[in-house]
Design a protein around this nucleic acid. Structure first.
Length: 297
DNA sequence: CTACCATCCTGGTTGC
DNA sequence: TGCAACCAGGATGGTA
């Protein structure tokens, strides 16, 4: 589910409440996520202090240290349906099927059966990882080996960094015969972009998702890089997009979904444009693509 | 290299 | 109403 803006929102929410805290207990109820949790996962987390949280692409990097800061990194990917929910000491998990109807905390209800990892801090607060589809990933990595981690080593540039610009994007699209939409979903081209924001950025850039990637050069690449930055920044400012089951760590909903120009708007009028066209849905690489065939060329 | 496909899961929604 | 098919925000790994 979550793309870069949602992960960034979760990161910012968690930062406020768990940095500085020490883990006093950890439990892995279901160790078989996308890959098995590392050996001794819960035991290794216990006693660690949270020194900070970083984000790389769609990965959360929780910086741990039992004594010295920055020894160990708790790597987390939310997959499609993963949620991290922080609750204060003694507070029940919001929106569980037993406690409330869906909607009070937003999105789908949380089924307690999908609470796979639970971490308790020294202030009594609890961080729960709930993931119905179990596409999520967790690992523990030595900090000095992070860059070499198999899930991180091939990632492209962060789209919001200064290193990412028109020429950098153009260079990574050179010679690629695939569609520009598929290229944007390739995490080696640019890190953290998923289906929603690929569609939205292409709309802002006025580029057809069906265009061959290698034709996006110079001015077009400049425009697309700028569009990616703007749509991701706008989404972060809105707290991300809540479709079915994404909520912030605090339980609040993001609201960028209301600002979608094309995503999930098949048949609707192309927004803010005089092209008199309607949003179309096509399938590329088995994923839905939404775009305006008149405005996007 | 590049591109396509299947795959890991569960659950909500749609359509017959 | 019941039930099956379809669809979903991701990313790897195998194959051609």
């Amino acid at each position: 589910m979550p793309e870069l803006p949602e992960v960034e929102t979760v990161k910012r929410g968690l930062e406020r409440v768990i940095v500085g805290r020490r883990i006093v207990a950890a439990e892995a109820r279901r160790p078989d996520l996308r890959w098995p949790l590392p050996a001794g996962f819960a035991e290794r987390l216990t006693g660690q202090r949270i020194h900070g949280i970083a984000r790389r692409a769609k990965y959360l990097l929780v910086q741990l240290g039992a004594a010295e800061p920055g020894e160990l990194v708790w790597l987390i990917h939310l997959g499609m349906s993963g949620r991290l929910i922080h609750t204060a000491a003694g507070e029940p998990l919001p929106g569980t099927v037993t406690s409330a109807q869906a909607g009070s905390s937003g999105g789908w209800p949380l089924h307690a059966a999908h609470n796979h990892v639970e971490v308790t801090f020294d202030d009594g607060s609890v961080l729960t990882f709930n993931d119905a589809r179990r596409f999520g990933v967790m690992d523990l990595v030595a900090a000095d080996a992070l860059d070499r981690h198999r899930l991180l080593k091939d990632l492209g540039p962060e789209p919001l960094s200064n290193a990412f610009n028109g020429p950098a994007l153009a260079a990574r699209l050179t010679g690629r015969r695939t569609s520009i939409k598929a290229a944007l979903l390739d995490q080696r081209v640019v890190a953290g972009v998923g289906n929603i924001y690929a569609c939205e950025a292409l709309f802002r850039a006025g580029l057809s998702p069906r265009r061959s990637a290698y034709t996006v050069q110079r001015g077009r690449a400049e425009g697309l890089a700028a569009s990616l930055k703007s749509v991701l920044s706008d989404a972060i400012a809105a707290g991300g997009s809540s479709l079915r089951d994404y909520v912030q760590a605090s339980g609040e909903l993001g609201y960028f979904q209301h600002a979608f120009a094309v995503y999930d708007r098949e048949g609707e009028e192309c927004p803010g444009c005089t092209c008199d066209s309607v949003v179309r849905r096509i399938v590329q690489q088995g994923r839905s693509t939404f775009y305006c065939p008149a405005r996007q060329r």
